[in-house]
Simulated assay, not measured.
Amino acid sequence: MLLKDFYTVEKLENVSDRKYNAVVVLNNQHAIFKGHFPGNPVTPGVCMMQIIKELSQEIVGSSLFMTSSSNVKFMALINPEINPVLKLELEISGDLDSEIKVKNTTIFDETVALKLSNTYKKA
């Protein structure tokens, strides 16, 4: 975990061939929220992308290096004081030995907060 104590993974499960669901709980007391933004904490987009990378690494069992990102859509602000529980859907494709493609949808309550497609190579 790049940011110590930023979040915890409550669940990471394989739901079908190369499709996974995860439940992540953000630590609303983490120091990053003191500066982003004081009195109105918002989860930084780059931190969400890091969570997706770390979950993908756990799924494929290897360190990953992001080579590209596309169709990144931040659709709602994630306030960790109001919505600390995030549900992530990850679909893994590609040749797991050379290029790993990950499609993600991140949801809190019934709100889609983030959609993206990332491509990784094993580090």
Rank of each mutant, 00 (worst) to 15 (best):
F33W: 07
T105S: 13
E13C: 10
M1V: 14
I92K: 11
N104P: 01
I107Y: 03
L86K: 01
K115C: 01
S16E: 15
F108S: 02
M75W: 00
Q29E: 15
I82N: 11
L3N: 02
D109S: 11
L2M: 13
P84F: 09
M66I: 03
N104A: 13
L2W: 07
V25P: 05
L90W: 10
S98F: 14
N40G: 08
L2I: 12
N28H: 14
P80R: 05
N83Q: 01
Y120S: 04
L26K: 08
V42T: 06
K101S: 10
T119P: 00
E89F: 02
V60A: 00
V72Q: 01
I107S: 00
Q57L: 01
E10Q: 15
K34C: 00
V60L: 03
T105V: 10
S69N: 06
S16A: 15
V25H: 11
K4R: 14
R18V: 04
H30T: 14
L77F: 08
H30Q: 11
E58K: 15
V23G: 08
V85K: 13
V42E: 07
S98M: 10
D17K: 15
K122D: 11
K19G: 08
T8E: 15
K4V: 12
S68E: 12
L26E: 10
N79E: 00
L96E: 04
L90D: 08
K101E: 15
L86A: 01
V46Q: 11
C47D: 08
S68H: 02
K11S: 14
V15C: 13
V102K: 07
I32H: 02
V60C: 01
P80W: 03
A123Y: 04
V72K: 01
K53I: 04
E99M: 11
C47M: 05
T67F: 02
A123I: 06
L96K: 05
F33P: 08
T67E: 11
S117P: 00
Q29D: 14
H36C: 13
